[in-house]
Simulated scan of single mutants.
Amino acid sequence: MSDSEPGDVVDPSEVSSPRSWRRAFADLSAGWRQRPLWGYLGWQDIKQRYRRSVLGPLWISISMGVIALGLGILYSALFETPIATFLPHVAVGLLIWNFVSGCILEGSEVFISNEGLIKFLPAPLTLHIYRLVWRQTLFFLHNMVVWAVLMMVFPRPLGWALLLAVPAFALLAVNGAWIAILSGILATRFRDIPPIIASVTQLVFYLTPIVWSIDILKDNEAARERASLVELNPVFHFLEILRQPLLGQEIVGRYWLVAGTITVVGWFAALVCLRNYRSRVAYWV
């Protein structure tokens, strides 16, 4: 099976070796150029899921709203926190977590689930990555309806900081792509990885301040020293860089710094994996 893509100008020194940085970056570039294809496929994924449903994709927002309302009311009562403050906190946290967990869980099986297309469709490997991230983006945009309703029910001053939500989400999407590349390639080789990732992801949900708040730890004198340990969770930083502008909270610069560092390190690891093993995925699936 040839590893070159249509239109590639192959360096003679790389013909015998499928491992090259040029081919890895060419795959990313070729996949991005096929935006009409993966854009259409991503939208069809959602339509197929809700085919013959009266409300269709609106069920995405409804289910998200019901879960956020139930958890918000429950934990607001348990933590004795005003619901006007806690419900938006929980809802936006779930909104962001659904995107993050979707990229992680579906990313680990992105190539396995597209076995037929990978084997018989001459397309860049990263086309399936872009399709996954685009599909999760559509889910996120649907769920933004819940945020809009909450801002009308519990109004708060958002200010110009709200504009930071755009680059914050872009950073989330970029990280979702490298996570899918890295975990997707490894999972095609080692099939035990998807269930391991699923278990770890569920654990991370409880360790991340989504249905609870870090302020609860800070207000508790006995647990105040442990509040800083939350920042060891990398998901926390990505959660906060988007939740803070969406809720009109104070922007913390170090969260952006940590998120940017993780992005650079993560993409380096993903590119190394893509360079070394992209040509083997078709055989592993």
Rank of each mutant, 00 (worst) to 15 (best):
A170H: 04
P155S: 09
S199M: 13
F154K: 01
W212E: 03
S29I: 13
I251C: 04
L247S: 00
H142L: 07
W212N: 02
E250F: 11
A227W: 05
L94H: 08
E14F: 05
W160T: 14
S2C: 02
D3W: 13
F111L: 06
G116A: 13
W284I: 12
A269D: 06
F120N: 15
S76D: 04
R156N: 01
W43M: 13
Y277G: 07
W256T: 00
D215N: 11
K47A: 14
L127I: 15
A165K: 06
I129G: 04
L55A: 13
R280M: 13
G7H: 02
V230L: 14
S4Q: 12
P6Y: 02
P245M: 11
A24D: 02
V153R: 03
W21Y: 08
L28G: 09
L127K: 05
P57V: 08
L162S: 04
V145L: 15
R156F: 04
A259D: 03
N98E: 12
S101G: 09
G107I: 05
V146P: 01
D27H: 03
G39F: 04
F205K: 10
S113H: 10
R19I: 12
S76T: 02
K119H: 01
F86L: 01
L78W: 09
W212C: 00
I112R: 09
G72E: 02
V200L: 15
V10G: 00
L41Q: 08
G116L: 10
A30E: 07
V110A: 09
N114V: 08
P57Y: 05
V211I: 15
R23K: 14
K218N: 13
L171K: 01
W284H: 08
R275G: 06
V9W: 07
L58H: 09
T126D: 08
L242G: 03
L229M: 09
A68M: 01
A227L: 05
W134P: 00
R51Q: 13
G107S: 02
